[in-house]
């Protein structure tokens, strides 16, 4: 039984770090613009699918990964330039609806390019499972966990330690005041979309060997990543990671100890409870903290 429990935990952390990685991208755009970007899942899918296609035509994996990240950043910038920027000044709800539209559009384009089949990316360091006590995990999961830790540290340092990062945060706190002190809000928005598209692409490429990818893959990952971000507190990158891990472990324990049929019900009940009792998320700042 103890051995089983250990495997549930390992599974939970593996799945949780996937969610965390996706949740991170949500947090970044939210920081810059107070907007939840529902096309974030599509960035994840685009990164994965582009990398898979490039590997399929013979590119070595590292080169394909870099190219896929750059292409996805390009898409993120284009999305910002042609869909978000023209509606600058519109309400947050309008902007969110624009991102939902963009998500549907990107999914449609992906459908035309790649069709409906699922595709897999080869694992970075083989498929031989690693044994930890009685539990096993795939080497690819270690890549995901490692990258999650590295990226969250980098994002945090960027937002708190660099002038550019602080300028980005300033835009979400008070856009007019940020503009008055000389911050170019448009440039900051582009930066946020470019960065989170890049983060999404990295997440997609890392998790594609485990979860496979298809034109629709962004929906599920986007939803779970979004849940991770709201559990942790929107706008707090560390919170998104903690939220993702919590979600993953909860799913695994729910399926393992109670019933696999109620796994998602347990998770969503938890999300509801969090929103009910702690609307800003478990690790979210109260809105006054930002000033």
């Amino acid at each position: 039984m103890l051995e089983q429990l250990f495997q549930f935990l390992v599974t939970g952390i593996t799945v949780g770090s996937l969610y965390a990685l996706v949740g991170l991208g949500f947090a970044l755009i939210y920081n810059a613009s107070d907007v939840v970007n529902f096309a974030q899942g599509e960035f994840v899918m685009l990164g994965a699918m582009t990398a898979i296609s490039l590997v399929a035509v013979g590119f070595p994996l590292p080169l394909a990964a870099v190219a896929a990240i750059l292409i996805t950043i390009g898409v993120g910038l284009a999305l910002e330039r042609f869909a978000i920027e023209p509606s600058l000044g519109a309400s947050v709800v309008t902007t969110i609806i624009i991102t939902i539209g963009a998500a549907i559009f990107l999914r449609g384009v992906a459908l035309l390019i790649w069709g409906k089949d699922f595709h897999a990316l080869p694992a970075f360091s083989g498929d031989a499972p690693i044994h930890l006590g009685g539990a096993t995990l795939l080497p690819q999961s270690l890549w995901v966990m490692g990258a999650t830790v590295l990226l969250v540290v980098l994002v945090r340092a960027f937002l708190n330690k660099t002038l550019l990062g602080k300028a980005l945060l300033a835009c979400s706190v008070n856009r007019a005041a940020a503009q008055l002190v000389g911050i170019n809000v448009r440039v900051m928005l582009r930066l946020a979309y470019g960065l989170s598209a890049g983060l999404g692409a990295i997440a997609g490429i890392l998790i594609a060997p485990i979860t496979f990818s298809s034109y629709e893959a962004g929906i599920m990952l986007g939803l779970k990543g979004f849940c991770a971000a709201i559990i942790g507190g929107m706008g707090n990158p560390m919170g998104a990671v903690a939220g993702g891990l919590l979600l993953g472990v909860l799913e695994a324990l729910g399926a393992g100890l109670i019933s696999s049929g109620y796994k998602d019900a347990i998770t969503f009940l938890f999300v509801l409870m969090v929103l009910f009792f702690e609307p800003t998320g478990l690790f979210g700042h109260k809105s006054a903290d930002r000033v």
Binding site: Q7, F8, I210, S260, K263
Partner: peptide, 20 residues
């Protein structure tokens, strides 16, 4: 007799129970 969601990305939990 275990089940999973069709969009799940990891099914090791259910399989661990089956292994037992």
């Amino acid at each position: 007799d275990e089940s999973y969601g069709n969009r799940d990305t990891d099914i090791t939990t259910q399989l661990t129970k089956i292994r037992a």
